[in-house]
Amino acid sequence: MDLGSHPTFESHDDGTVLTSAPQDAPVDRATAAARRVVDAMLRTDRANANLDRVAEELNSIADHLEEHAPAVAERLIDMWNGEGVTRHDPVTGPENAIAPPIVLEGLSDGSVRGEVTLTMPYQGPPGCVHGGVSALILDHVLGVANAWGGQAGMTAQLNVRYHRPTPLFEPLTVTGRQMSVEGRKINTVGSITTADGEVCVSVEGLFIDAAVPRPR
């Protein structure tokens, strides 16, 4: 999570938005459509859907996008030098089709919070969120919590505890909070809970305050 030098946050009555919410912009609409395709591919009737036609049309779309893609190194730099709040990460990025995406708010008590309903692309056991997806989400949320807390760092260790299966197709609340800073070491905790308050996953993270290598 890169908050940049001068991030612009949007304040709400109950908190400050720390991540970029989807906008009515062509790239956001196109990315949302790509998410629909990924989800629909997992749900479609493979025996009756015309998947040959789907493959042809999707390859045509990919060809069009690749024709307008700059060099990878150039795109990496552009992504790092964005608005101060990333729009491309795989958890909160509205420009990333694999992100749900989650919108996170910073609260006055120092914590961050977001809500999300995960669907078929994030499935592990039947009807449940993949454990690796839960860890990915919490790693990112803890990073945002560190930035909100005033001292960010790179992930050194995550201790993830799975209390119960995390359900798909149900509202989930994701939280994070920076607990302590000891020199360069930052200790942060977080969780994923159901709408009725059941803890599905909890995490304790150790982060190290270090410069993040950036493309040049």
Rank of each mutant, 00 (worst) to 15 (best):
T119Q: 10
E67V: 05
S5L: 12
S108G: 01
G110Q: 14
G82I: 03
S134P: 08
I61W: 14
G4L: 07
H163L: 14
S108N: 09
T173L: 01
R29G: 04
P126M: 14
Y122D: 05
A145V: 07
L206M: 12
D28N: 13
V91Q: 06
V129N: 11
A210R: 13
M179D: 14
E198N: 10
P90G: 02
M1H: 10
T166M: 05
I137G: 04
A73L: 08
S60A: 15
R113C: 11
C200R: 01
A211T: 11
H68V: 09
C200Y: 02
A25P: 01
T155H: 06
H130R: 12
M1G: 14
Q23R: 15
R36I: 11
R177G: 05
Y162T: 08
T175P: 06
P90T: 04
E170G: 00
S134R: 00
R36Y: 05
P26K: 07
D2H: 13
G124M: 07
T16Q: 14
L118K: 05
L42M: 04
G4N: 11
D139E: 15
D63L: 15
G124A: 10
V141L: 10
E170I: 03
R53V: 10
A47F: 08
G205Q: 11
P213R: 01
T119M: 03
V174H: 02
L42R: 04
N81K: 11
V112N: 04
R216D: 01
S202W: 02
G190K: 00
D45C: 09
H12V: 10
A25M: 12
A97K: 00
R87C: 05
V17E: 15
A49W: 08
L51N: 04
V85K: 13
E66D: 15
N50S: 10
F169V: 06
V203S: 07
V203G: 02
E10D: 12
L206N: 07
P121W: 02
Q151E: 09
V85Y: 02
I208L: 14
T117G: 01
A152Y: 00
S191Q: 14
M120F: 06
V174N: 02
S11W: 09
F169T: 06
N146E: 10
R29L: 15
L107Q: 12
T188P: 04
S191R: 13
E198P: 00
G127C: 11
N81H: 09
F207E: 00
T166V: 03
D89T: 05
G183R: 02
G84E: 03
G110C: 13
A40W: 05
R214Q: 04
T194L: 04
S191T: 10
E57P: 00
L172I: 07
G176N: 02
N48W: 09
A210C: 00
P94F: 00
V72K: 11
C128Y: 12
R43E: 07
R87K: 12
Q157P: 00
K185H: 09
L3V: 10
D89K: 05
D63R: 15
V203H: 03
A152S: 14
G131P: 09
V37Q: 10
E95V: 01
A97W: 08
R53H: 09
R43T: 03
Q157R: 15
M79A: 12
E198W: 06
S60W: 15
E66V: 10
G15V: 03
T175E: 13
